[in-house]
Design a protein around this nucleic acid. Structure first.
Length: 417
RNA sequence: GGAGGGAUCGCAUAGUGGUCUAGUGCGGCCGCCUGCUAAGCGGUUACUCCGAGAAAUCGGGGUCGUGGGUUCAAAUCCCACUCCCUCCGCCA
């Protein structure tokens, strides 16, 4: 959510910033609602002051003068009518504000869409194979570690079953990543996978993107599309001590996405499913530090790729490709020789105070000082099915078997009888 | 799912319709006194919104778990919900 004061005082600046992301911003409705709200509020408060005053008089009076009671009754009616109008206006204003995306950070490159993103750096050389490397769906089926047919039998398209060493490899990756990030100072979190609506609003997934979410109508639970959602809401309505900042969290969760938007895209393999696992990094920082913390966050996520010795590149998203809540984003893409594409295994974003405003997460710079909104950052560290793809395709051997990356070997020591 | 109890300022507690501008204690902060310490004395003590101001600050509104209701008037009465505790049922 953007600061209404900024919109009020400098709508042109906001418009310019949002135009960079291809958003046409018309502040007129918002400004009108804002002005109307404040005008109504002043009226209501004036009446209330009168009401309180009269009530006090009446309270002190031994004999209750009937004209005072009449006055009270009269004021009460006026207040309740005006109050209704005020709340309604506030609601309208709020729902408008909730639908405006974050403003891009000035350092973000200008661009229209994905095609204007730029590769910031690459690491490693794509391996050359003395044979034609297979895509993971073929490897997975041949090795009997990914069962597509039974996945469909159980849950329909875009579902699969990992079996045997496939499931084991994923589990090894999860533990490896979690441990690595914990070493880097992140605190492990195991959050709920189903959350209240207000959490989805807090992270920015609602009200605008309900198409991509699973929702349990009976009990009004929303299934998380990423651990970012519960982690954004962990400290909802809290004022944090500056001494605890920055907070670093890491969580492994399942993620659920309806993927209505991506219908027909990436239908082969395990690249895009309705359910997948992800290790997610999350930070809460002081505003002045979030830019640096984003770079460090990317570095921490990158480290996973390096340890796995899989070539990757860092892509900076242009203004037009930024997510709703982000002011700056880097993607990490691993090279997958089998399907011959760069796989997006992570998206690391600085959300500045956008989510903190929605969730009301603040910190006090020093005791007695006014509380300020924190900045929040998130990034995958990393998304599992895609890393699994990269491991399978990069480590495939001529005989169709998979070499286990050195970093994962300690996690794969299993006696199979 | 059923039955009961509860939620008040950082913590602990008082408050059964108007004098609550929510009291008291503890803790915190500031000061005083005491040749150290302990103790004592005085003061202070939340968040948020609107408005005025360059600012310090000032005026006003709201907040006693949340939302409704009754009433001229609600921390206080009524209803619903949320969360916590005790018990029963069910369950991993």
């Amino acid at each position: 959510m953007l600061d209404i004061k900024l919109i009020r005082e400098n709508p042109a600046l906001v418009r310019q910033a949002l135009e960079k992301r291809g958003e046409t911003f018309t502040p007129e409705n918002i400004l009108k609602a804002d002005e109307r709200y404040r005008r109504l509020l002043r009226q209501v408060e004036l009446l209330r002051a009168k009401h309180n005053e009269t009530s006090k008089q009446l309270g002190k009076a031994k004999e209750k003068p009937p004209e005072l009671i009449t006055e009270m009754r009269d004021l009460g009616e006026q207040i309740s009518t005006l109050q209704q109008e005020t709340s309604q206006t506030k609601k309208e204003l709020n729902s408008l504000l909730l639908r405006i995306p974050n403003m891009p950070h000035p350092s973000v490159i200008l661009g229209k869409d994905e095609s204007d993103n730029i590769v910031v750096r690459t690491w490693g050389e794509p391996k050359t194979f003395p044979f034609k490397p297979l895509p993971h769906w073929e490897l997975g089926e041949k090795l009997g570690i990914i069962d597509f047919h039974r996945g469909v039998k159980l849950s329909g398209r875009r579902f699969y079953v990992l079996t045997g060493m496939g499931a084991c490899l994923q589990r090894a990756l999860i533990t490896f990543m979690l441990n690595l990030h914990i070493e880097h100072g992140y605190k492990e979190i195991y959050p709920p996978f189903m959350v209240k609506q207000e959490c989805m609003i807090g992270s920015g997934n609602l009200p605008k993107f309900s198409d991509n979410l699973y929702h349990d109508v009976e009990d009004d639970f929303w299934f998380i599309p990423t651990a970012e959602v519960p982690m954004t809401n962990l400290h909802r309505n809290e004022v944090l001590d500056v001494k605890v900042l920055p907070l670093y969290y890491v969580a492994h969760t399942a993620c659920f996405r309806r993927e209505k938007m991506a219908a027909g895209k990436d239908t082969r393999g395990i690249k895009r499913g309705h359910q997948f696992d992800k290790v997610e990094l999350y930070k809460l920082t002081e505003p002045e530090k979030s830019a640096d913390e984003l770079e460090k966050l990317v570095g921490d996520a990158e480290e996973v790729c390096r340890r796995l010795a899989i070539p990757y590149r860092i892509v900076q998203l242009c203004t037009g490709d930024l997510g709703f809540a982000a002011c700056k984003t880097y993607d990490i893409e691993m090279w997958a020789p089998g399907c011959a594409e760069w796989l997006e295994v992570s998206s690391c974003s600085n959300c500045s105070d956008f989510q903190a405003r929605r969730t009301n997460i603040r910190y006090r710079p020093e005791s007695g000082a006014k509380a300020r909104f924190v900045h929040t950052l998130n990034g995958s560290g990393l998304a599992l099915p895609r890393v699994l793809i990269a491991v399978l395709e990069n480590y495939q051997q001529p005989d169709g078997t998979i070499l286990i990356p050195e970093a994962l070997q300690p996690y794969m020591k299993i006696v199979v009888s």
